[in-house]
């Protein structure tokens, strides 16, 4: 696989990952929302709310907390809409980034709060098995999950624990009892493999 020009690959992934029309529609809605168009923002919400709520729920687990965070995410998207830069990636990618970051920050803030207050119970909350089960029980999302199948078991565990579990790679290393550098490499190799696979199979 060529690593020479990641940018051209990105374009290939972006173009093939979702129908151009959907990406264009979302970009148009976001642009209008950026000019203060609330109706356009409402339509944008309809298009991506399941994406936002889904990933937030996956990370934080608690539905009422996920709902609260999802609302914050959308307010943030509304606020930042005038600054969306299409050159940096698709609308979905940007929104998923905002949502995931917000969910992870919440989980970590609570984690560190717990760590401070509960020195004895410094156990990471989510273990590997439960995350894998959660991921596996959604086998109907075939495309991505098929793509996850192409990863080695180790890569898959690292990617899932990091992204769906909301863990840092250091935490993932501790959970898997593996060297940090190794986990970092698995995450990277796993993502490259997924990127290439998702890019060529659409």
């Amino acid at each position: 696989m060529d690593r020479v020009n990641p940018l051209s690959r990105l374009k290939a992934v972006g173009a093939r990952a979702e129908p151009a029309s959907e990406a264009d529609v979302l970009a148009g809605l976001l642009q209008r929302a950026g000019r203060g168009d609330q109706a356009a923002f409402g339509e944008l919400y309809d298009g991506v709310s399941a994406l936002v709520y889904g990933i937030v729920l996956k990370v934080v687990r608690d539905p009422s907390q996920a709902e609260e965070i999802a609302q914050e995410v959308f307010v943030e998207i509304w606020r930042l809409a005038p600054r969306y830069d299409a050159n940096r990636g698709s609308v979905k990618s940007w929104i998923a980034t905002v949502a995931h970051r917000r969910a992870v920050d919440r989980v970590r803030a609570e984690q560190s709060h717990r760590d401070r207050n509960d020195v004895v119970g410094r156990q990471l909350e989510r273990d590997h098995d439960s995350v894998s089960e959660l991921v596996l029980d959604r086998l109907d999302r075939t495309r991505v999950l098929n793509a996850l199948d192409i990863l080695t078991q180790d890569q898959r565990a690292a990617v899932e624990l990091a992204y769906f579990g909301g863990h840092t790679y250091r935490e993932v290393a501790a959970l898997l009892d593996t060297a940090e550098g190794t986990v970092k490499g698995r995450i990277r190799d796993g993502l490259i493999k997924l990127r290439d696979h998702l890019g060529v199979n659409q």
Binding site: G54, T97, H100, R138, R141, V144, L145, A147, R195, L198
Partner: peptide
């Protein structure tokens, strides 16, 4: 590049709010 890939992972978790 990786964020586009991550967004596709997120799509495997879509749940209606």
């Amino acid at each position: 590049d990786y964020r586009e890939t991550a967004a596709l992972l997120a799509e495997s978790a879509t749940t209606s709010p």
